[in-house]
Design a protein around this nucleic acid. Sequence first.
DNA 1: GTTATTTGACCGGG
DNA 2: CCCGGTCAAATAAC
Length: 239
Amino acid sequence: MQEASSSSFAGLGPDNQQKALVARELKRGRVTAHRLRHILGDDQILPAQGLVDEILDSFTRSISILCESDELSQADSKKPRKEKRGCYKRRKSSETWIKESATLFDDGHAWRKYGQKVILNAKHPRNYFRCTHKFDQGCRASKQVQKIQDDPPLYRTTYQDQHTCTHINAVFNLSPQKDSPIIWNFEQEYGGEEDKRVNIESPAYLDGNLFSPDVYSCSASTHTMDMDMYVLDDFLDFS
DNA sequence: GTTATTTGACCGGG
DNA sequence: CCCGGTCAAATAAC
C-alpha cells in the first residue's frame, strides 16, 4: 500500500500494464505540480498556492486509489497476503539528495523515527525517519541521518522523495504541542546513565525558505549541498 | 487513553 | 549469505 512506484506493477498482465502507465503519468503530474508549488513559495497568500495544493492532493489520491485496486486484484488472484513482520516492498531508486551539516537541524517537517541501524565500518549508527503523514496523507518522504565525523562533528542527512503532504503547521510552528520542540535521541546505546536528549528550538521555523529552489530541480539523482544556514548550537552531547 | 520511540526480526538486493 | 532498509511489538512519553 505504501508502494506507489512502478515496481509494484512489475510482472503484471496487460490490464495492469495500462494501470502502470496511468500511474506513471499521474506521478509525473504530481512531481510537476510539486515543483510549481515550490516556485510559488510558502507565503500562503497567493490563491494559486491553494490551487496547486489541491492539484497535488488530487494526484496523490488518484495514485493511491490506483495502487489500492491493484493490491485488491492481486489478493484475489492467488497469494495470501503475507502478514509477517518486516514484509515490504523495497523502493526503487528515487529522488534523493544529501545535506551535510556540522549540527543537526530542523528542516521544518514532522518526522517519525522508524529505525536505527549499525552500519558496517561506520562509527555511528544510521537513523531512519519517515514523514509523519505517511499514512494519513500518503506522503512518501523519508530521510536518513547519520553522524559521519566526530571532530569536528559532521552529520549527513539523506532525503528521499519530496513531501506531498501539507505541512503548514510545521513550517510556521503553529502546532500546539506535537511538532515542537523536536526531540531526537541518537546513539543512546552508547550512553551511560544520564539522559542525553536535547531539545531543539529551530530558527529555521521562522525562515520560510527552508530549501534553496535548486534542491527541487533534481530528479532521480543524488547530489550534495552545504548546510551552513541552519545553526543549532550544542545540539547533542556525544561522549 | 493516544502517540512516539526503541529495538530485534524480517526481507530482499547484491 | 551479508548488509542495510523496513516492520511492528514492546515500551516510553504524554
